[in-house]
């Protein structure tokens, strides 16, 4: 086991990890539960976090390479407009996938491209939701995209 120091949502944290321990597991073992795990093989996106600006499945990233990294979860990436849109559009049922979807959605919204129904689907295709059938999530992201564009004009 070795000790890994990184910044999690702006605060310094120290994690214990073996060489085989994923960032997801090291975070959760230390009681940081904002990222969830549902497959532990990079298929479901429920563990998505941003590591030094890059969105990654934290179940596939060894914790030991995250020394000094800046790790961001839903706690620092969620904006209120997206939270409101998720709630109003029925984007959440059991909610287990939601923090991962928030990370994927904020990344899509932050990108330069202008989002359409099809591109949102494509950008969210790495996340699995078993409850909602996705339409509420897609609509929420599209609405926020539209409003942020208008606000920036």
């Amino acid at each position: 086991m070795s000790s890994v120091r990184l910044r999690l949502d702006g605060s310094p944290v120290e994690l214990e990890a073996a060489s085989s321990t994923s960032l997801l597991r090291a975070l959760r073992d230390a009681g940081h539960t904002k990222a969830q795990g549902a497959c532990e093989q990079g298929e479901c996106g429920s563990c998505l976090v941003r590591i030094d600006g890059v969105v990654q499945n934290s179940c596939l990233v060894p914790a030991t390479i995250c020394e000094d990294a800046n790790v961001e979860t839903v706690a620092s990436l969620l904006n209120q407009d997206l939270a409101d849109a998720f709630a109003r559009h029925g984007a959440v049922q059991c909610g287990f996938c939601t923090p991962g979807f928030v990370v994927a959605a904020e990344a899509a919204l932050a990108s330069a491209e202008s989002l359409t129904y099809d591109t949102v689907r494509e950008r969210l295709a790495g996340n699995i939701c078993r409850c909602t059938g996705y339409h509420g999530i897609i609509e929420a992201v599209l609405e926020v995209s539209q409003r942020r564009r208008e606000a920036n004009q």
Partner: peptide, 21 residues
């Protein structure tokens, strides 16, 4: 209206059984 469990779920603050310590 918005369900009572939804805002904490969006914020990642909802406690699932695997979060219990």
């Amino acid at each position: 209206v918005i369900r009572p469990d939804v805002p904490p779920k969006i914020a990642g603050e909802f406690e699932y059984s695997n979060d219990v310590r």
